[in-house]
Design a binder for these strands. Structure first.
Length: 512
DNA sequence: TATGTCTGCCCC
DNA sequence: ATTCTGC
DNA sequence: GCAGAATGGGCAGACATA
């Protein structure tokens, strides 16, 4: 199949807003597609190439803007895939230059529309209103198999392309080969948010409350002495966390799959900040050098498989029992089972006092909903707010032509002026975007390519979860997960919170 | 060698 | 990660 | 309720450049 055929379907998908119609366009394409190209095109339609990230980012792509497009389409899907393969294989000195040359050559053979598609694909912003979810529906429609069955197979396979090939070529019965088994990581279950523990308990009834640790999600697979550790995105990270391998090897089970969190702990049993955990997690070099001073500890909270039996369809209560029977208590997340809101609230307070992020509240009857934001898991995190001054805004956002991304500043009561603490666009409705665009242009005192700087007069109430060290901002501090709650028309810049206040919060640990 | 820029099925 | 929006 | 879009800070590592 030609690239142009895929591009035209992508355009048709982007043009319509209806999910059913998007699905139909994609299903038609899948039906026409030669079976040996399913593995290439399905990832394209889900928004990323088969090869994953291949070392091409925004800077490289924006340097390609001058390439004149071809007059007529000639690229085959296979040509593109082969070029991506070559790009992915490049490394070492001079690789950036040769990568740039190969990409230039590819884009030079593409029409304007094809160039546009390839650039968005490589940048990871296809924006056709259909990613994996819609593609799953399309596979279902094209194969005549139920969407739930396809979705489940994708969660277990971790990859829609192989499921598409099986469904379209071999049919329904062949999907049964997608089962949970060791060393085939499954997409982790995700959680919804709740405002507080009492709210979560009243939603879920009998529940287990767990410390929510601010580390990195891990899925650990063990068969006999062989252990592999996967990240939330199913990336294999075994080499980064030898401590986890040691703990897993010691578990008395022939085969087991566990879900948990890896975090750097202090000797006194309190957690390091997330930034410190990240110095270890994801590191491949010098792991042994950092290990003595910065050990990583796994804390497990779920068991997905044990000695030949998949547990994902078992209720949480049974999965917990099997977990605690096999794993030492020091490697299980602290937890309490209760339906009593007061007891739950006390446990949550204890989690925060120990320095943790908050708690998870989970229904005891819940199944493990792989890859989904299950309604049976609720996270409760502590947030606080500051009144900050808007220093500037950037041209970007949901609707082009609005000033959306806000620069947030705290008042510097000692030296005068304001100290920038980060940016946010979150929490802004379409209505607020329209209002602030007008307002900020009236307050403009200067601009550059993307930014309008304004007189520091507008105050917003900004929620955040943590204050963290920053090498980017002049005060050396930045807000984590900042979002706008509301504008404070009743406050002037002189009423805004001061940088000294933020420094004090950071010193105490922003969660205490 | 030292520093800066870019990238990441990155982590949150 | 968080949040808003259309379906 | 789901899926998608749009965007945040910071980390290690690879490579380019001075």
């Amino acid at each position: 199949m030609r690239l142009a055929d895929v591009v035209s379907v992508s355009h048709a998908v982007a043009r319509t807003s209806g999910r059913l119609e998007k699905t139909q366009h994609l299903a038609d394409l899948l039906t026409r597609l030669p079976s040996d190209e399913i593995g290439i095109v399905v990832p394209f339609l889900s928004g990323s190439p088969r090869q994953g990230r291949i070392g091409i980012g925004g800077a490289m792509l924006s340097s390609m803007r001058d390439i004149p497009p071809a007059d007529a389409p000639s690229l085959e899907i296979r040509d593109v895939d082969a070029a991506f393969d070559r790009l992915a294989a490049m490394s070492g000195a001079g690789s950036a230059t040769s990568r740039s040359q190969v990409l230039r050559q590819l884009l030079g053979r593409a029409t304007r529309d094809e160039q546009d598609f390839l650039v968005r694909l490589l940048f990871g912003e296809l924006r056709q209103g259909a990613l994996e979810g819609i593609v799953i529906d399309a596979i279902a429609r094209a194969s005549g198999i139920g969407a739930a069955r396809i979705r489940r197979a994708v969660m277990l396979a971790g990859d829609p392309a192989s499921v598409a090939r099986t469904a379209l070529v071999d049919g329904d019965a062949a999907l049964s080969r997608f089962i949970l088994e060791p060393f085939q990581p499954v997409q982790p279950m995700l959680a919804d948010s709740a405002t507080d523990v009492a709210d979560a308990i009243s939603t879920l009834g009998d529940a287990v409350i767990e410390y929510k640790l601010d580390g990195a999600r891990i899925q650990v697979h063990k068969v006999d002495d062989e252990v592999k550790v996967y990240s939330r995105n199913l990336r294999e990270v075994t080499a980064a966390v030898p401590e986890v391998v040691t703990v897993a090897r010691g578990i008395p089970a022939r085969a087991i799959v566990l879900d948990g969190e890896a975090i750097a702990m202090r000797e006194d049993g309190t957690p390091h900040p997330f930034q410190i955990t990240m110095r270890r997690f994801g590191r491949r070099l010098d792991v042994d050098r950092l290990r003595p001073d910065l050990p990583i500890t796994p804390f497990f909270f779920d068991a997905l498989y044990l000695d030949g039996e998949p547990l994902v369809d078992e209720p949480l209560a049974r999965r917990m029992d099997l977990l605690t029977a096999r794993v030492t208590a020091s490697n299980v997340v602290p937890r309490v089972v209760t339906a009593n809101p007061a007891e739950a609230a006390a446990f949550a307070a204890q989690a925060l006092a120990t320095g943790h992020e908050g708690v998870m509240v989970k229904a005891l009857t819940g199944r493990y909903a792989a890859g989904r934001r299950g309604q049976t898991w609720l996270k409760v995190k502590q947030a606080r707010t500051l009144d900050l001054v808007i220093l500037a805004a950037e041209w970007s956002g949901r609707r082009k032509g609005t000033l959306s991304n806000l620069h947030l500043g705290a008042r510097d009561s000692e030296r005068g002026g304001f100290v920038m603490l980060g940016k946010t666009f979150k929490g802004l409705t379409d209505e607020m975007l329209a209002w602030q665009t007008k307002k900020f242009l009236a307050l403009e005192i200067g601009r550059d390519a993307y930014t309008v700087f304004i007189r520091p007069e507008v105050v917003a109430e900004v929620a955040f979860n943590e204050i963290q060290a920053s090498s980017q901002y002049p005060g050396g501090l930045a807000l984590r997960f900042a979002r706008v709650k509301r504008y404070r028309a009743d406050k002037s810049a002189a009423d805004a919170d001061t940088f000294a206040t933020i420094q004090e919060m950071y010193g105490q640990g922003s969660r205490l």
